[in-house]
């Protein structure tokens, strides 16, 4: 088999690349795919934390490149899902420890054994980005409805379009806050899509559950009640080629608004 290599990138830091990677990876594995995630953020690794695998790492991607271990030895299996693996970044080295060629080579080898190879890209547009993109043929650009994140995403899209190996890229809008959009205080999903003129693959609502799930080292897709988790599971299904409608986040808030209105009316009447 030849697996699909998807790089998850954003340009700006802190928009949720690693969270997206952990959740999409977990959701794809839950759906029965063999998935490996590669953390290419050398020196600033975090994907292991989000998956709760930080204590299981023996070898890293640098050990593989410098031939201290075999590629298979460096793959850390997920606690719950045997279909899910992590190739961790080295924490003690910098971006120069792995080259574009070496990363490409690792991706090619992993394609034989996995359905999906998700590459977690570091922030920025320097060598770390170039390395992460080197082996991929698809990209997911993560952004939030904030000006700086959208601007950086536009830069990244420009760079991706210049790369021949990247056959398609899609936009994932994270941390959407329907309340703020409704009150016209935040750019809407439609605004961002129009400005970047890119195809959308996911809309993830802001969810405080993300913080607790990160603290527990348990991706939020495993929480069946969470709205963000549902949104991530939908993204995974879209990646697998299924046609899943986007969550209607506005309806959700209008229900809350209705309830609020109802109660405020009640209180008003009592007076």
């Amino acid at each position: 088999m030849t697996g699909r290599v998807i790089v998850i990138t954003s340009g700006k830091g802190g928009v949720g690349k690693t969270t997206t990677n952990a959740n999409i990876g977990t959701a794809l594995a839950r759906a029965g795919n063999k998935v490996v995630m590669i953390d290419t953020d050398l020196g600033l690794r975090n994907l292991d934390l989000l998956l709760g695998l930080e204590n299981r790492i023996v070898y890293t991607i640098v050990d593989v490149v410098e031939e201290r271990c075999k590629l298979k030895q460096a793959l850390v299996k997920d606690k719950k899902n045997p279909n899910l693996c992590l190739l961790a970044a080295a924490q003690t080295r910098d971006k120069t420890a792995v080259t574009e060629e070496q990363l490409k080579d690792i991706c090619e080898k992993l394609q034989k054994d996995f359905d999906f190879i998700l590459v977690d890209c570091p922030a920025g547009i320097e060598q770390g980005f170039q390395n992460a993109v080197a082996g991929a043929s698809e990209a997911i650009v993560v952004t939030t409805p904030e000006m700086s994140a959208v601007r950086d995403a536009d830069r990244i899209i420009g760079l991706l379009e210049a790369k021949e190996e990247i056959k398609s890229y899609k936009l994932l809008i994270n941390r959407v806050r329907p309340n703020l959009i409704k009150s016209n205080d935040m750019m809407s999903v439609e605004d961002v899509v129009e400005i970047l003129s890119a195809e959308l693959i996911g809309i993830i609502p802001e969810d405080t559950g993300i913080i607790t799930s990160t603290n527990k080292g348990e991706p939020i897709v495993n929480d069946d009640k969470s709205l963000a988790g549902m949104a991530y599971r939908n993204v995974a299904q879209r990646i697998m080629g299924e046609d899943v409608p986007f969550l209607n986040l506005e309806e959700e808030t209008s229900v809350v608004a209705k309830v609020k209105k109802f109660f405020s009316n009640l209180i008003g009447k009592e007076k």
């Binding site: 000006m147 959208v150 601007r151 536009d154 830069r155 420009g158 959009i181 016209n184 205080d185 935040m186 750019m187 809407s188 605004d191 400005i195």
Partner: peptide
């Protein structure tokens, strides 16, 4: 002049220059 429109317009201008 809501925050959303201001953001959209500023972004459009800045992106044009970037591009």
């Amino acid at each position: 002049e809501n925050a959303k429109d201001v953001a959209c317009n500023r972004l459009r201008v800045v992106l044009m220059q970037d591009r």
